[in-house]
Each structure stands twice: as C-alpha cells, then as structure tokens.
Design a binder for these strands. Sequence first.
DNA 1: TCAAAATGTAAGTAAGCACTTGCATTATAA
DNA 2: TTATAATGCAAGTGCTTACTTACATTTTGA
Lengths: 216, 216
Amino acid sequence: MDSNRKAAKTRERLLQAAIDVFSTEGVVGATTRQIARVANVNEVTLFRHFQSKEQLLAAATQHITAMQVESLDHLDEWTQDLSRDLLHYARLHNAMLEENEALIRMFIGEAKRHPDEALQVLQQAFLPLREKLTNYLRNGVERGNVRPDVDLFLAVDQLTGMLLAGMLRRHVMPVERGYRPDHYVESCVDLIVRGIGTASANPERLSPHPSSHPNS
Amino acid sequence: MDSNRKAAKTRERLLQAAIDVFSTEGVVGATTRQIARVANVNEVTLFRHFQSKEQLLAAATQHITAMQVESLDHLDEWTQDLSRDLLHYARLHNAMLEENEALIRMFIGEAKRHPDEALQVLQQAFLPLREKLTNYLRNGVERGNVRPDVDLFLAVDQLTGMLLAGMLRRHVMPVERGYRPDHYVESCVDLIVRGIGTASANPERLSPHPSSHPNS
DNA sequence: TCAAAATGTAAGTAAGCACTTGCATTATAA
DNA sequence: TTATAATGCAAGTGCTTACTTACATTTTGA
C-alpha cells in the first residue's frame, strides 16, 4: 500500500506550493490554477486532495506550524554571557524573519480576515521562541545578570518587535538608511542589554559601541 | 460653475470609501461594487471619476499622503526633558498607528505587490516624523541629554519599530500578555532613554521603573 | 499479470469580476 | 426657463474564478 506514499508526496508538493503562492499573492490573489502549476500537478488533483481553497489554506497553515516546531531546536547552547547569548538569539530570530518574509507579510496583512489561521501560525511559531528566551532571562535574574524588576515578557516583545519592524523596513525602503542592516540587530541587542542587564552584564559601558565592527 | 464642487464631493466620498474598503479587504479583495456602495454612489459613477480600479488605488494613495501631511503638526512643543518629550512623541505615534491599523496592515501585506504606492505612503507618512524626532535628538546631543556616539536614525527606527510591532501584536493576540498595553509604550520610551540618554537624562536610575504604575 | 488507486485531460458550470453602453433623472448655472 | 453637467439605472460584455464531471492513462501492490 505504498500508493499512500505517492499521494502523500503530491500532497506535500501541493502544500508547499500553496504556502509559496499564498505568501506572494495573498489569500484572495492566489488561484488554485497557479498553486497546481507550481506544484507540477493538475488542478483537478488539487481538488481531490483538498475539497476547497479554504481548506487548502487551513491545511497549509497547519503544515507551516508543524515545520516551525521542528526548526526550533537550534537554540540550546547558552554561554551565560547575556550580550553574547542575546546576540546569538537575535541573529537566529532575524534570519528566521528574513527567510519567511513573504509569509509574515501575508499573515500580518490578512490577520483580520483569517484570524484563526494567523493566530495559529503566530502562536505556534513565535510563542515557543518567546517562552524559551523568557526562561533564559528568568535564569539570568537568578544569576544576577538581569535586573529583577524588569518585565521579561515585555522585554522579549520589545526585542522581537524591533527585529520584526527592522525586517519589514529593510525590504520596503530603498537603501538610504544610514546604518548597516547587521548593525541594526547588534544595536537592538545592545539596547536591550543596557535596559535590562545589571552592571555585571554591561562590562564595556565605557566604549561607545561594544559589539560593533571596526570599519569606516 | 459650482457643479465642480458637487463632483469634488462625490470624488472625495469615493476616495474615502476606497481607502476603507482597500484597508479592510485588501487590494484584490476590494471590489468596485463595494467601494461604490460604501460611498453611496452608483458603480458607474466610480468609473466616471476614475478610469480603472488601479488608478483609483493610486488616487487613494495620494489622498492618504495628503491627509497625513496635515495631521503632522501636532508635534511642536518640546519641554527639553528627554523622557517627557519622547513619551509625548511615542504616545502620539502610537495613537496614529492604532487609528490606521487596517491601512498599515494592508500596506505591509501588499508592499511587494504595490511597491510604488506602499513606498509613497510610508515615505510621506513616516519619514517626516522620523526627521522631526531625529532633529530633536540631535538637538539633545548638543544640550548634553543624548550621548554623542549614538546613531540617531537607528534609535528612532528602534523606537518606532517597537511601537509598530506592539500595535500589530496587540490586535492579533488575545489578552494573555501579562503587561498592560499603555505600559508597553512607556516601557519602550524608557528603554530608549536608558540606551541613548546621558546620566543627566536618566535622573531616576535608582528606582526600578521610573514611569511605571504600582500594580502587581 | 491484474485489479485498484492515483493522476491526467478535456470540457463545462455557475458565479463574480472590472468595465461599458444607452438613456433617463436630477441638480446646477445663466 | 433652459442648456449643461453630474449622477442614476438597467443591461450587458468578456474574462476569470472555484469547482465538477466523465473518461483515459499511468502507477502501484499483490
């Protein structure tokens, strides 16, 4: 009964194509024809796998969250140096944002029209990351790296918010922005460390830009 | 020749309706029928004022930027107290984000499909604000409120980025977020002041949360 | 080899879309 | 009042959409 496997394979191709087309064209703009074409599959086959375009969207949403859960595990080695660890996290987070730019844009724009799907993706994709970082910071409080009076959830939302907005800006604005893109991420981490870290986590308060590169 | 004025009035109604419907339904999702219905106007009249849906979008985009330029002037009284002034600015900026939520979502989602319109709105609506705040901060450097080694453009982008992301999050996530929404804005300002302000701009470095409320 | 399952192909349906045409109706200007 | 400009109304055009039906072809499991 390995005809299951073939069906599952085209189903997978359809889901990936749906994610691509939905991301770039939006939910209304995406057509079943184009999705089928991208999946290298006849349009009728699409409707044999998914009864309707709406249900294809639901299945694609679930497929996304399943993938995101897998790719979460790259984040386990903490050096207990607040600046280093936050920078590591921020770079991973930023890379994830950059990779999924079209998808994120689409869900932000469509959040009010498809609240269930948007909420599901955001909750499954971002909340675990937030939880993990919050736990790390809570640990930092006990180690004396992080001031005990800060709202950790809020601080994490601030960091990820800056990264998200930075990604959105980067891809719309022309160059013209003064600072370099990778400097932005570093500077956001720096800002957070200044804001929530204790003196022991801010060793280089003397030099202007702690983690910046020596270039013109 | 005051039949001009009547035509201009329905044109205005059509533009406002177009902005509303484009915002809530997206560019592809919006139909000329619905826009005409919202404007209380026959669909044919829409096409007599604008040759095509695409040109209606262009006109609506221009109409938006024209409106934004007017509403910019509420921002002129600076007390020269960095915390106070930034908080004032942040609250205005946040109110503007909240008012135009649907429109902003739509332009974020559609930025890649309509780059010209998105860029025009963003440039006309956000760049002047950024310029104004940057100038204020540059002034603060000379007064000794702001550290001279900070990248002012970057700092402004960080603040507005946190506010934008905060607004986007607020309207998608259910409650469940621990901190209160208005505390978020204050905390973002606080973070920036800690990050870019000199000691003279951070008078209450002793107390945990300078401008926070006494709640559990 | 043979039945069953998965896919392809061709054609079609009903609905909605942007947009047009022709003419009647209303409001404005002189 | 009368000519003109703005709008309403009814109908229609051509196109695209999601989705279906019927049948032929390929792939797979035993």
